[in-house]
Amino acid sequence: MKQLFFLLLLITAISTNAQTKDKQHILAILDAQTKYWNAGDLENFMKGYWKSDSLMFIGKSGVTYGYNNTLENYKKGYPTRDAMGILKFNILKVEKITADAYFVVGKWHLTREKVGDVEGHYTLFFKKIKGEWVIVADHSS
């Protein structure tokens, strides 16, 4: 009986450690996105997203499908450094759904001197694809 108990403890510890590492990796992606955005580098900001025609971005204009379309929308919506401003994320929730999927909820805020600050909320669906965590769906408002 003791062996079974210790085996269960070991499995729980391994599972918790893997979940912690996955969460840390996802938070690191969001941190990198913030740094790239604040450097005016949309190309590298997009590295957090799934490079696929199936990527889904939902915003005030509706649903956009595809990595390239999403990047082009960012470029149109934020054509200058002044428009981009300084991005800050406030993570409200990071929840494991399955072994290869996480749900993230947060707030975003852009500090913009010339055109005024804007902010909203986002929901991200992260999926582990080919060993890498990527955003496969983003609903930002």
Score class of each variant (00 low, 15 high):
137 A>W: 00
45 F>K: 04
66 G>Y: 03
45 F>Q: 02
28 A>G: 10
62 G>Y: 08
107 K>W: 03
60 K>F: 08
57 F>L: 07
84 M>N: 06
19 Q>R: 12
140 S>Y: 07
61 S>D: 14
14 I>T: 14
55 L>Y: 08
1 M>G: 15
64 T>I: 15
91 I>G: 04
43 E>S: 12
44 N>F: 03
104 V>I: 09
82 D>V: 06
104 V>A: 04
92 L>N: 13
111 T>I: 10
124 L>H: 09
17 N>D: 13
140 S>E: 01
126 F>A: 02
23 K>G: 01
80 T>E: 09
91 I>M: 08
65 Y>K: 14
100 D>I: 13
23 K>S: 13
93 K>F: 00
22 D>N: 15
9 L>Y: 07
45 F>G: 02
1 M>E: 10
28 A>H: 12
18 A>W: 08
118 V>S: 15
88 K>V: 10
35 K>M: 05
114 K>D: 07
126 F>K: 02
102 Y>A: 05
123 T>G: 01
20 T>L: 13
112 R>C: 06
80 T>W: 05
72 E>L: 10
80 T>N: 10
49 Y>T: 04
121 H>I: 11
129 I>S: 02
6 F>V: 10
53 D>A: 13
86 I>E: 11
111 T>M: 11
69 N>Y: 00
58 I>H: 02
92 L>K: 14
124 L>V: 03
55 L>N: 02
67 Y>E: 03
42 L>W: 04
125 F>G: 06
24 Q>F: 05
12 T>G: 13
116 G>E: 05
131 G>D: 09
120 G>E: 05
57 F>I: 07
3 Q>I: 13
117 D>R: 08
1 M>K: 08
88 K>N: 13
23 K>C: 04
46 M>T: 05
66 G>T: 06
65 Y>P: 00
57 F>D: 03
64 T>L: 11
89 F>C: 02
126 F>Q: 04
122 Y>T: 01
38 N>K: 06
1 M>S: 14
35 K>L: 11
109 H>L: 14
39 A>V: 01
22 D>G: 08
99 A>I: 10
98 T>E: 12
89 F>V: 02
43 E>I: 11
114 K>V: 05
115 V>C: 01
70 T>M: 05
81 R>G: 04
9 L>R: 07
132 E>M: 09
33 Q>C: 05
112 R>P: 07
101 A>M: 14
111 T>Y: 11
